[in-house]
Amino acid sequence: MTTPSHNNRIWITIDGRSLQVPPDITIREAAALAGVEIPTICYHDALTPNAVCRICVVEWRGARTLVPACVARVADNAIIQTNSRRVRTARRTLLEMLASAVDLSQAPEIQAMMQEYDADPDRFGPEARRRETGGVKDDNPFYVRDYDKCILCWRCVQVCAEDVQHTFALGFNHRGFDTEIATFFNLGMKETTCVFCGNCVGVCPTGALKGKRLYELELRGDS
């Protein structure tokens, strides 16, 4: 007896290579089966993917726009290019825009991506507005928040809410370019529902959230 999953396998082509994959997996997962790694920033294995960073976009023949590989699912006979010129332009421009707005000095993975895609954030000039959030928020004994380093990947908000902790201490200020991670009326963490579980610090990819001890060690190292 053949297993249903075997019966259901579909053919796709990724970067010129045709292969059979299970249906209903994402492009990112299918690409991994083809030995192709697709870059991601906001994606995290343990969290609901929201496809906000769009670094993982790929070209799907016939689609009007690029599609996000972290959430878009493969279909039979899909022809996908993960590294075309169009894809690379989008990724390079996204990285340039991100680096021109945010302090990425403690985000080595994104820095490596910028090398890979030849991204030059200085193209936007010295007057390009940066994310300026008024300095490090040091308001509790456990961790600090430095939102000049925040890339709005949403991971901290998600672990604090339905994805893990159900604490609902974190949300957003403003919208658009001015969006910021925030607490209720920007209260200090001790005045919120925060239980100091540390999950948000654990998933932060850029050092915007940092354990207090590490932060103090770094400060001492700088001086």
Partner: peptide, 21 residues
């Protein structure tokens, strides 16, 4: 567009601001 971008995805959140500049 810079005023009305919701800020969810990077292309629009960052791009509408850079376009305005």
């Amino acid at each position: 567009f810079a005023h009305e971008s919701c800020g969810k995805c990077y292309p629009c959140q960052l791009g509408t601001q850079r376009q305005l500049e």
